[in-house]
Nucleic acid binder design. Structure first.
Lengths: 177, 177
DNA sequence: CCCTTTTGCTTGACGCGTCAAGCATCTGGC
DNA sequence: GCCAGATGCTTGACGCGTCAAGCAAAAGGG
Protein backbone atom coordinates (compact mmCIF):
# COMPACT_ATOMS: atom_id res chain seq x y z
CA UNK A 1 0.00 0.00 0.00
CA UNK A 2 2.43 2.65 -1.16
CA UNK A 3 0.97 6.01 -0.29
CA UNK A 4 0.79 8.72 -2.97
CA UNK A 5 2.74 11.28 -0.96
CA UNK A 6 1.63 11.91 2.51
CA UNK A 7 0.39 15.13 4.04
CA UNK A 8 3.22 15.19 6.51
CA UNK A 9 5.76 14.90 3.80
CA UNK A 10 4.45 17.96 2.06
CA UNK A 11 4.25 19.89 5.31
CA UNK A 12 7.87 19.27 6.05
CA UNK A 13 9.16 20.33 2.64
CA UNK A 14 11.10 17.24 2.31
CA UNK A 15 13.54 16.16 -0.26
CA UNK A 16 14.08 12.58 0.74
CA UNK A 17 11.27 10.16 1.53
CA UNK A 18 10.55 8.77 4.94
CA UNK A 19 12.75 5.96 6.06
CA UNK A 20 9.79 3.98 7.27
CA UNK A 21 6.10 4.15 7.75
CA UNK A 22 6.81 4.19 11.45
CA UNK A 23 8.95 7.26 11.15
CA UNK A 24 6.14 8.97 9.32
CA UNK A 25 3.72 7.92 12.01
CA UNK A 26 5.91 9.18 14.81
CA UNK A 27 6.38 12.57 13.19
CA UNK A 28 2.68 12.86 12.43
CA UNK A 29 1.86 11.96 16.02
CA UNK A 30 4.19 14.53 17.55
CA UNK A 31 3.16 17.29 15.19
CA UNK A 32 -0.52 16.62 15.62
CA UNK A 33 -0.24 16.62 19.37
CA UNK A 34 1.49 19.99 19.23
CA UNK A 35 -1.27 21.41 17.08
CA UNK A 36 -3.97 20.13 19.39
CA UNK A 37 -2.14 21.31 22.48
CA UNK A 38 -2.07 24.81 21.10
CA UNK A 39 -5.75 24.74 20.30
CA UNK A 40 -6.53 23.88 23.90
CA UNK A 41 -4.01 26.32 25.33
CA UNK A 42 -5.70 29.19 23.54
CA UNK A 43 -8.91 28.42 25.38
CA UNK A 44 -7.53 28.68 28.88
CA UNK A 45 -4.87 31.35 28.48
CA UNK A 46 -7.27 34.27 28.23
CA UNK A 47 -8.36 33.24 31.72
CA UNK A 48 -4.90 33.77 33.09
CA UNK A 49 -3.81 30.16 33.45
CA UNK A 50 -1.81 27.76 31.33
CA UNK A 51 -2.99 24.41 30.08
CA UNK A 52 -0.92 22.60 32.69
CA UNK A 53 -2.33 24.74 35.45
CA UNK A 54 -5.81 24.02 34.18
CA UNK A 55 -5.01 20.32 34.30
CA UNK A 56 -3.95 20.52 37.91
CA UNK A 57 -7.00 22.48 38.92
CA UNK A 58 -9.25 20.01 37.19
CA UNK A 59 -7.62 17.17 39.03
CA UNK A 60 -7.97 18.97 42.33
CA UNK A 61 -11.58 19.82 41.66
CA UNK A 62 -12.18 16.13 41.23
CA UNK A 63 -10.41 15.35 44.47
CA UNK A 64 -12.84 17.47 46.40
CA UNK A 65 -12.56 18.32 50.06
CA UNK A 66 -10.03 15.65 51.00
CA UNK A 67 -7.47 17.18 48.68
CA UNK A 68 -4.67 15.23 47.07
CA UNK A 69 -1.01 14.82 48.03
CA UNK A 70 1.51 16.34 45.65
CA UNK A 71 2.75 13.03 44.32
CA UNK A 72 -0.78 11.94 43.53
CA UNK A 73 -1.29 15.03 41.46
CA UNK A 74 1.92 14.25 39.64
CA UNK A 75 0.81 10.73 38.92
CA UNK A 76 -2.27 11.97 37.16
CA UNK A 77 -0.20 14.22 35.02
CA UNK A 78 2.61 12.64 33.08
CA UNK A 79 5.11 14.68 34.96
CA UNK A 80 7.93 14.33 37.44
CA UNK A 81 7.40 15.57 40.96
CA UNK A 82 9.63 18.65 40.82
CA UNK A 83 7.57 20.15 38.07
CA UNK A 84 4.42 19.56 40.06
CA UNK A 85 5.80 21.26 43.14
CA UNK A 86 6.54 24.41 41.22
CA UNK A 87 3.29 24.26 39.29
CA UNK A 88 1.53 24.20 42.65
CA UNK A 89 3.71 27.04 43.92
CA UNK A 90 2.51 29.24 41.10
CA UNK A 91 -1.10 28.24 41.58
CA UNK A 92 -0.87 28.91 45.29
CA UNK A 93 0.58 32.34 44.54
CA UNK A 94 -2.45 33.01 42.35
CA UNK A 95 -4.80 31.97 45.11
CA UNK A 96 -6.07 28.97 43.19
CA UNK A 97 -4.55 26.27 45.38
CA UNK A 98 -4.23 25.83 49.10
CA UNK A 99 -1.69 23.45 50.66
CA UNK A 100 -1.57 21.88 54.06
CA UNK A 101 0.63 19.31 55.75
CA UNK A 102 -1.17 16.05 56.20
CA UNK A 103 -1.52 15.40 59.94
CA UNK A 104 -1.36 11.61 59.63
CA UNK A 105 1.78 11.62 57.54
CA UNK A 106 3.69 14.81 57.92
CA UNK A 107 5.75 14.09 54.82
CA UNK A 108 2.78 14.58 52.59
CA UNK A 109 1.41 17.91 51.49
CA UNK A 110 -2.27 17.93 50.67
CA UNK A 111 -3.43 20.21 47.91
CA UNK A 112 -6.87 21.71 47.42
CA UNK A 113 -8.53 23.80 44.77
CA UNK A 114 -9.81 27.03 46.28
CA UNK A 115 -13.36 28.21 45.62
CA UNK A 116 -11.99 30.67 43.07
CA UNK A 117 -10.31 27.78 41.28
CA UNK A 118 -13.53 25.78 41.27
CA UNK A 119 -15.40 28.66 39.79
CA UNK A 120 -12.75 29.11 37.14
CA UNK A 121 -12.69 25.45 36.17
CA UNK A 122 -16.47 25.19 36.15
CA UNK A 123 -16.57 28.17 33.89
CA UNK A 124 -14.15 26.50 31.51
CA UNK A 125 -16.00 23.20 31.27
CA UNK A 126 -18.16 24.12 28.34
CA UNK A 127 -15.52 26.00 26.34
CA UNK A 128 -13.06 23.15 26.82
CA UNK A 129 -15.59 20.59 25.75
CA UNK A 130 -16.16 22.63 22.63
CA UNK A 131 -12.43 22.92 22.05
CA UNK A 132 -12.00 19.15 22.35
CA UNK A 133 -14.65 18.58 19.74
CA UNK A 134 -13.24 21.31 17.59
CA UNK A 135 -9.74 19.90 17.80
CA UNK A 136 -10.89 16.63 16.30
CA UNK A 137 -13.71 17.99 14.21
CA UNK A 138 -12.18 16.66 11.00
CA UNK A 139 -12.72 13.08 12.12
CA UNK A 140 -15.84 11.09 11.55
CA UNK A 141 -16.99 8.78 14.29
CA UNK A 142 -15.38 5.73 12.79
CA UNK A 143 -12.09 7.49 12.37
CA UNK A 144 -12.14 8.74 15.90
CA UNK A 145 -12.71 5.22 17.13
CA UNK A 146 -9.86 3.94 15.02
CA UNK A 147 -7.59 6.68 16.27
CA UNK A 148 -8.41 5.91 19.85
CA UNK A 149 -7.74 2.23 19.38
CA UNK A 150 -4.45 2.86 17.67
CA UNK A 151 -3.28 5.30 20.33
CA UNK A 152 -4.24 2.95 23.11
CA UNK A 153 -2.24 0.20 21.51
CA UNK A 154 0.77 2.40 21.05
CA UNK A 155 0.79 3.29 24.72
CA UNK A 156 0.12 -0.24 25.81
CA UNK A 157 3.31 -1.22 24.05
CA UNK A 158 5.40 0.79 26.48
CA UNK A 159 6.18 0.48 30.15
CA UNK A 160 4.35 3.09 32.19
CA UNK A 161 7.35 5.20 32.83
CA UNK A 162 10.63 3.54 32.12
CA UNK A 163 11.80 4.71 35.51
CA UNK A 164 9.98 2.66 38.05
CA UNK A 165 10.64 -1.02 37.33
CA UNK A 166 7.15 -1.90 36.28
CA UNK A 167 4.48 -0.43 38.46
CA UNK A 168 0.91 0.03 37.32
CA UNK A 169 -0.40 2.60 34.91
CA UNK A 170 0.36 6.25 35.20
CA UNK A 171 -1.89 9.03 34.30
CA UNK A 172 -2.00 12.33 32.62
CA UNK A 173 -4.04 15.34 33.26
CA UNK A 174 -6.83 16.84 31.30
CA UNK A 175 -8.81 14.28 33.10
CA UNK A 176 -12.55 14.86 33.26
CA UNK A 177 -12.42 15.24 36.99
CA UNK B 1 -20.71 1.89 19.84
CA UNK B 2 -20.31 2.45 23.55
CA UNK B 3 -16.85 1.36 24.58
CA UNK B 4 -16.46 -1.06 27.50
CA UNK B 5 -14.13 1.22 29.46
CA UNK B 6 -11.23 2.65 27.66
CA UNK B 7 -7.56 2.20 28.38
CA UNK B 8 -7.12 5.89 28.98
CA UNK B 9 -9.86 5.92 31.50
CA UNK B 10 -8.17 3.26 33.55
CA UNK B 11 -4.82 4.95 33.26
CA UNK B 12 -6.16 8.15 34.67
CA UNK B 13 -7.88 6.56 37.67
CA UNK B 14 -11.03 8.28 36.90
CA UNK B 15 -14.22 8.50 38.75
CA UNK B 16 -16.38 10.25 36.24
CA UNK B 17 -16.62 9.22 32.61
CA UNK B 18 -15.34 11.27 29.71
CA UNK B 19 -17.50 14.13 28.65
CA UNK B 20 -17.15 13.20 25.02
CA UNK B 21 -15.41 10.83 22.72
CA UNK B 22 -13.46 13.82 21.50
CA UNK B 23 -12.18 14.57 24.94
CA UNK B 24 -11.03 11.01 25.25
CA UNK B 25 -9.30 11.27 21.89
CA UNK B 26 -7.54 14.49 22.78
CA UNK B 27 -6.23 13.11 26.04
CA UNK B 28 -5.11 9.90 24.39
CA UNK B 29 -3.35 11.88 21.70
CA UNK B 30 -1.45 14.10 24.11
CA UNK B 31 -0.49 11.28 26.41
CA UNK B 32 0.64 9.03 23.60
CA UNK B 33 2.76 11.75 22.06
CA UNK B 34 4.46 12.28 25.41
CA UNK B 35 5.22 8.60 25.70
CA UNK B 36 6.66 8.44 22.22
CA UNK B 37 8.66 11.60 22.71
CA UNK B 38 10.33 10.08 25.72
CA UNK B 39 11.15 6.90 23.86
CA UNK B 40 12.95 8.91 21.20
CA UNK B 41 14.61 11.23 23.66
CA UNK B 42 16.25 8.31 25.41
CA UNK B 43 17.95 7.34 22.18
CA UNK B 44 19.71 10.63 21.60
CA UNK B 45 20.39 11.78 25.15
CA UNK B 46 23.22 9.33 25.80
CA UNK B 47 24.97 11.07 22.92
CA UNK B 48 24.88 14.40 24.70
CA UNK B 49 22.12 16.08 22.74
CA UNK B 50 18.41 16.55 23.25
CA UNK B 51 15.69 15.50 20.86
CA UNK B 52 15.20 19.07 19.70
CA UNK B 53 18.90 19.49 19.07
CA UNK B 54 18.88 16.29 17.10
CA UNK B 55 16.02 17.64 15.03
CA UNK B 56 17.92 20.78 14.19
CA UNK B 57 21.05 18.88 13.26
CA UNK B 58 19.08 16.58 11.04
CA UNK B 59 17.53 19.52 9.27
CA UNK B 60 20.92 21.14 8.80
CA UNK B 61 22.45 17.94 7.55
CA UNK B 62 19.76 17.90 4.90
CA UNK B 63 20.50 21.49 3.98
CA UNK B 64 24.06 20.62 3.11
CA UNK B 65 26.74 23.12 2.24
CA UNK B 66 24.49 26.07 1.52
CA UNK B 67 23.28 26.08 5.08
CA UNK B 68 19.89 27.39 6.13
CA UNK B 69 18.82 30.74 7.60
CA UNK B 70 17.56 30.67 11.15
CA UNK B 71 13.95 31.30 10.24
CA UNK B 72 13.99 28.45 7.77
CA UNK B 73 15.13 26.11 10.48
CA UNK B 74 12.32 27.36 12.65
CA UNK B 75 9.79 26.73 9.95
CA UNK B 76 10.75 23.09 9.74
CA UNK B 77 10.32 22.75 13.43
CA UNK B 78 7.01 23.75 14.92
CA UNK B 79 8.68 26.42 16.93
CA UNK B 80 8.86 30.18 17.24
CA UNK B 81 12.04 31.93 16.20
CA UNK B 82 13.34 32.85 19.66
CA UNK B 83 13.53 29.23 20.65
CA UNK B 84 15.46 28.42 17.52
CA UNK B 85 18.00 31.15 18.11
CA UNK B 86 18.83 29.79 21.52
CA UNK B 87 18.78 26.21 20.37
CA UNK B 88 21.36 27.20 17.79
CA UNK B 89 23.35 29.08 20.42
CA UNK B 90 23.69 25.92 22.44
CA UNK B 91 24.58 23.83 19.44
CA UNK B 92 27.19 26.34 18.37
CA UNK B 93 28.66 26.25 21.86
CA UNK B 94 28.94 22.48 21.53
CA UNK B 95 30.72 22.83 18.20
CA UNK B 96 27.88 21.20 16.29
CA UNK B 97 26.71 24.25 14.40
CA UNK B 98 28.50 27.05 12.63
CA UNK B 99 26.81 30.37 11.84
CA UNK B 100 27.68 33.03 9.34
CA UNK B 101 26.04 36.23 8.17
CA UNK B 102 24.67 35.85 4.70
CA UNK B 103 26.58 38.22 2.40
CA UNK B 104 23.65 38.84 0.05
CA UNK B 105 21.24 39.69 2.83
CA UNK B 106 23.04 40.71 5.93
CA UNK B 107 19.92 40.28 8.02
CA UNK B 108 20.01 36.55 7.64
CA UNK B 109 22.22 34.20 9.56
CA UNK B 110 23.10 31.00 7.76
CA UNK B 111 23.48 27.89 9.84
CA UNK B 112 25.51 24.81 9.04
CA UNK B 113 26.04 21.45 10.64
CA UNK B 114 29.72 20.93 11.40
CA UNK B 115 31.45 17.70 10.39
CA UNK B 116 31.19 16.54 14.00
CA UNK B 117 27.45 17.09 13.83
CA UNK B 118 27.18 15.14 10.60
CA UNK B 119 29.06 12.25 12.09
CA UNK B 120 26.82 12.31 15.13
CA UNK B 121 23.61 12.39 13.15
CA UNK B 122 24.79 9.71 10.74
CA UNK B 123 25.62 7.56 13.70
CA UNK B 124 22.13 8.03 15.07
CA UNK B 125 20.28 7.15 11.86
CA UNK B 126 20.00 3.48 12.52
CA UNK B 127 19.18 3.69 16.24
CA UNK B 128 16.53 6.31 15.56
CA UNK B 129 14.98 4.26 12.83
CA UNK B 130 14.82 1.37 15.24
CA UNK B 131 13.31 3.62 17.90
CA UNK B 132 10.63 4.83 15.51
CA UNK B 133 9.64 1.28 14.73
CA UNK B 134 9.82 0.36 18.36
CA UNK B 135 7.64 3.27 19.38
CA UNK B 136 4.82 2.05 17.18
CA UNK B 137 5.59 -1.65 17.37
CA UNK B 138 2.20 -2.45 18.83
CA UNK B 139 0.46 -1.42 15.63
CA UNK B 140 -0.15 -3.68 12.71
CA UNK B 141 0.21 -2.25 9.23
CA UNK B 142 -3.45 -1.54 8.82
CA UNK B 143 -3.63 0.22 12.14
CA UNK B 144 -0.62 2.33 11.34
CA UNK B 145 -2.23 3.39 8.10
CA UNK B 146 -5.44 4.26 9.86
CA UNK B 147 -3.56 6.23 12.49
CA UNK B 148 -1.69 8.18 9.87
CA UNK B 149 -4.86 9.01 8.00
CA UNK B 150 -6.62 10.12 11.15
CA UNK B 151 -3.71 12.30 12.28
CA UNK B 152 -3.41 13.90 8.87
CA UNK B 153 -7.07 14.78 8.94
CA UNK B 154 -6.86 16.23 12.39
CA UNK B 155 -4.05 18.53 11.35
CA UNK B 156 -5.72 19.43 8.11
CA UNK B 157 -8.63 20.74 10.13
CA UNK B 158 -6.49 23.49 11.61
CA UNK B 159 -4.81 26.55 10.17
CA UNK B 160 -1.06 26.15 9.97
CA UNK B 161 -0.32 28.32 12.91
CA UNK B 162 -3.13 30.54 13.99
CA UNK B 163 -0.69 33.42 13.90
CA UNK B 164 0.00 34.14 10.28
CA UNK B 165 -3.33 34.74 8.53
CA UNK B 166 -3.21 31.68 6.34
CA UNK B 167 0.14 31.02 4.85
CA UNK B 168 1.18 27.64 3.56
CA UNK B 169 2.11 24.60 5.54
CA UNK B 170 4.53 24.66 8.39
CA UNK B 171 6.81 21.90 9.35
CA UNK B 172 8.18 20.06 12.26
CA UNK B 173 11.48 18.50 12.80
CA UNK B 174 12.41 14.89 13.05
CA UNK B 175 12.35 15.18 9.35
CA UNK B 176 14.27 12.53 7.47
CA UNK B 177 16.63 15.11 6.09
C1' DC C 1 18.27 60.01 -2.14
C1' DC C 2 15.62 59.93 2.35
C1' DC C 3 12.30 57.94 5.20
C1' DT C 4 8.92 54.65 6.52
C1' DT C 5 7.87 49.86 6.67
C1' DT C 6 9.00 45.19 6.56
C1' DT C 7 12.00 41.40 7.43
C1' DG C 8 15.27 38.53 10.12
C1' DC C 9 16.96 37.84 14.13
C1' DT C 10 18.22 38.58 19.29
C1' DT C 11 17.13 39.56 24.14
C1' DG C 12 14.41 39.52 28.39
C1' DA C 13 11.08 37.48 31.12
C1' DC C 14 8.37 33.66 32.44
C1' DG C 15 6.27 28.95 32.67
C1' DC C 16 7.25 24.32 32.02
C1' DG C 17 9.88 19.46 32.32
C1' DT C 18 13.70 16.83 33.90
C1' DC C 19 17.78 15.28 36.46
C1' DA C 20 20.50 15.14 40.63
C1' DA C 21 20.80 16.38 45.50
C1' DG C 22 19.05 17.38 49.84
C1' DC C 23 15.95 17.23 53.98
C1' DA C 24 12.23 15.74 56.92
C1' DT C 25 9.39 12.07 58.11
C1' DC C 26 7.87 7.44 58.38
C1' DT C 27 8.72 2.15 58.50
C1' DG C 28 10.60 -2.15 59.48
C1' DG C 29 14.03 -4.87 61.65
C1' DC C 30 16.45 -5.57 65.53
C1' DG D 1 13.25 2.19 71.60
C1' DC D 2 16.99 2.84 67.76
C1' DC D 3 18.67 3.11 63.35
C1' DA D 4 19.04 2.04 58.42
C1' DG D 5 16.37 2.49 54.69
C1' DA D 6 12.29 4.00 52.07
C1' DT D 7 9.08 7.85 50.99
C1' DG D 8 7.38 12.53 50.00
C1' DC D 9 8.63 16.53 48.79
C1' DT D 10 11.76 20.78 47.76
C1' DT D 11 15.72 23.06 45.60
C1' DG D 12 19.21 23.99 42.03
C1' DA D 13 20.54 23.84 37.48
C1' DC D 14 19.60 23.49 32.72
C1' DG D 15 17.12 23.01 28.22
C1' DC D 16 13.05 24.14 25.99
C1' DG D 17 8.79 27.16 24.18
C1' DT D 18 6.45 31.47 23.95
C1' DC D 19 5.35 36.42 24.21
C1' DA D 20 6.77 41.18 23.85
C1' DA D 21 10.38 44.43 22.74
C1' DG D 22 14.34 45.85 20.43
C1' DC D 23 17.76 46.48 16.63
C1' DA D 24 19.90 46.32 12.20
C1' DA D 25 19.53 45.52 7.34
C1' DA D 26 16.71 45.59 3.22
C1' DA D 27 12.71 47.22 0.35
C1' DG D 28 9.64 50.41 -1.34
C1' DG D 29 7.65 55.05 -1.91
C1' DG D 30 8.06 59.78 -2.46
Amino acid sequence: MTQPQSAIQREIRQRRPFQSRSQEGVIALLRTADVVRRVLARVVEPHGITLQQYNVLRILRGAGAEGLPTLEVGERMIEQTPGVTRLLDRLEAKGLVRRKRCPHDRRQVLCFATPAARRLVDQLDAPMDRADRDALRALETGELDALLRALDRVRSGHAPRGHAPQDRSRAHALKPT
